[in-house]
Amino acid sequence: MSGNGNAAATAEENSPKMRVIRVGTRKSQLARIQTDSVVATLKASYPGLQFEIIAMSTTGDKILDTALSKIGEKSLFTKELEHALEKNEVDLVVHSLKDLPTVLPPGFTIGAICKRENPHDAVVFHPKFVGKTLETLPEKSVVGTSSLRRAAQLQRKFPHLEFRSIRGNLNTRLRKLDEQQEFSAIILATAGLQRMGWHNRVGQILHPEECMYAVGQGALGVEVRAKDQDILDLVGVLHDPETLLRCIAERAFLRHLEGGCSVPVAVHTAMKDGQLYLTGGVWSLDGSDSIQETMQATIHVPAQHEDGPEDDPQLVGITARNIPRGPQLAAQNLGISLANLLLSKGAKNILDVARQLNDAH
């Protein structure tokens, strides 16, 4: 009898209710805020589980004197976190989706994509230029951005401005803007500013005609071990179906173009009346040469937790077992079709030249 009692006690200790789920994140304040929001949602869904947040620095956090596009290494903000995932030191990792490459290392998958916040870019102005827009900034004003995508589009749109690289986390960039006289304004992701509670610093939100956004911008991705079915089931509740389908289309477009950090590629997606609209573009580094096109596809946005595919093969690095396969494939095909259209119009040449120029500098 006593033996059975011990077995029952052991089973209770090993039951999922007692389990601590370890969540990996970057150390920056924004990353911690984003991770806290994901953990809060998981806690609400699984009140019996405990969650421990483990923060670590990544290569991208450490190399702050070089433009991201020049470092010449993929997975700048993800490699150390993936290493911890691989060694079973954490069970899942919360990322900004735009930091996750469209091809993940073997053994990993994006197990959830959370509801997207505003994906557009924002302009934050130096205190002396508050009330201005990019259009009304004085001639030769210097605007800071760490992104080739932003610089290429904005140089084309605002030729009277000069664009220079600015690195560091959000706090560091804002301090550089406010305390030094080098920059009249800087460009940042609206979602990051909003998550930090800095709505009052948003001086201008850039519309798609001015600057399309990065693939996955404004959404959070939760990376897990691809074979860890328990954790895949656990994080599945975080999937937002519309965000998922938009981001599958965007990531398929980028992957098929073979774009990345070192080339200016941008997108804009919208879901309306059962249609998914995808606009994508590529630019030369100075913005003088560009190709942009829009395509659409009829896609039914499923309700969360309709029964999805059981075999769960990944699409552009994403596993969404609780979302039907048909809409996911339709979104992926839309991204591939748009990429093929741009490639047929000469996108590869623009991107190759951009890559060579970026590598040469």
Rank of each mutant, 00 (worst) to 15 (best):
S37H: 12
R150N: 00
L134I: 10
M196S: 05
M56P: 05
P208L: 10
I186L: 08
K74S: 05
V90T: 07
T78G: 11
E162T: 03
A360N: 03
E135R: 13
T109C: 14
H95T: 04
H160Q: 13
L64G: 14
R175K: 13
I248F: 11
L278Q: 15
K87G: 08
G274R: 07
L42A: 06
F108G: 07
A112C: 14
G335Q: 04
A152P: 07
R164E: 14
L49V: 12
L254M: 09
Q332D: 08
L100C: 15
L206K: 02
T294Y: 00
G281P: 01
L285G: 15
R149T: 02
V282D: 03
G72H: 09
L97W: 00
T298S: 12
L85S: 02
A331S: 04
F129G: 08
M295L: 14
R116Q: 05
K79G: 12
R164V: 09
T172W: 05
M271A: 03
W283V: 00
L76F: 07
K272Y: 02
G274S: 03
T78N: 09
G111L: 01
K87F: 08
F108R: 14
Q50I: 09
I323P: 02
L342I: 07
A189D: 00
Y213A: 01
V301M: 05
D121V: 02
V353C: 03
H83W: 14
L85V: 10
L232D: 05
T136M: 14
L206N: 03
E80F: 02
N349G: 11
K128R: 08
G218F: 00
A249K: 04
I166W: 12
D65W: 08
L137G: 03
R175P: 02
I54C: 03
L276D: 03
L97C: 07
A112Y: 04
G192C: 11
N349Y: 07
P138I: 09
F108M: 02
R325A: 09
P302C: 12
T58A: 09
Q217K: 05
Q304P: 05
F108I: 14
P47S: 11
H126V: 07
R149G: 00
I291G: 07
A252G: 05
E258P: 06
K79H: 12
Q204R: 09
T294P: 15
K157D: 08
A360V: 15
Y213T: 02
G107C: 12
I71D: 07
K157A: 13
H126P: 12
C114Q: 12
G346N: 08
E52P: 07
G335D: 07
K74Y: 07
V267D: 00
R150H: 05
L234V: 14
Y213E: 14
L170T: 07
G192V: 06
M56K: 14
G197P: 05
G107D: 12
E86M: 10
A214L: 03
K157I: 10
V202H: 03
L334T: 00
L92S: 05
P324A: 07
D311R: 10
V39Y: 10
Q155K: 13
P101Q: 08
G287E: 01
V93S: 03
A270P: 01
H268R: 15
E89F: 13
D121Q: 01
L276F: 04
G281E: 15
E52F: 11
E242G: 04
A55M: 08
S69Y: 09
E210K: 02
D91E: 12
H83Y: 14
C247W: 03
Q356I: 02
F77Y: 09
A339S: 06
W283R: 07
A354V: 07
T102V: 05
A67T: 14
V353I: 06
Y277A: 13
V123T: 14
H83G: 10
Y46G: 06
A297G: 10
E293H: 14
L76E: 05
S146Q: 14
S288A: 13
L244N: 05
V235A: 05
S288Q: 14
V316H: 03
G236S: 12
P313V: 13
E86D: 10
A252R: 05
A40V: 12
S37G: 08
S290R: 06
H120M: 12
A270D: 12
K176G: 05
R195M: 02
G111H: 00
A84G: 07
A320E: 11
S75N: 14
K79Y: 12
T59D: 14
S337P: 03
P138V: 08
S284Q: 15
P309C: 04
E80T: 12
V124G: 06
T172N: 12
L137Y: 05
P47V: 12
E135G: 09
E73W: 04
H239N: 07
T145V: 10
D307Y: 09
E310Q: 15
K157M: 12
G281C: 07
H268E: 15
K348F: 11
F253L: 10
L85Y: 01
V143C: 14
N340L: 07
E139C: 14
E293L: 06
K157N: 15
C261F: 05
A55C: 08
K132W: 13
H239G: 02
E293P: 01
F253P: 04
A189F: 03
V235W: 02
S69W: 09
P208H: 12
P208A: 06
D289A: 13
L341K: 12
T145N: 04
G218H: 01
R321A: 12
V130A: 12
A44D: 09
N171I: 12
E209T: 03
L85H: 00
G60D: 04
G144N: 02
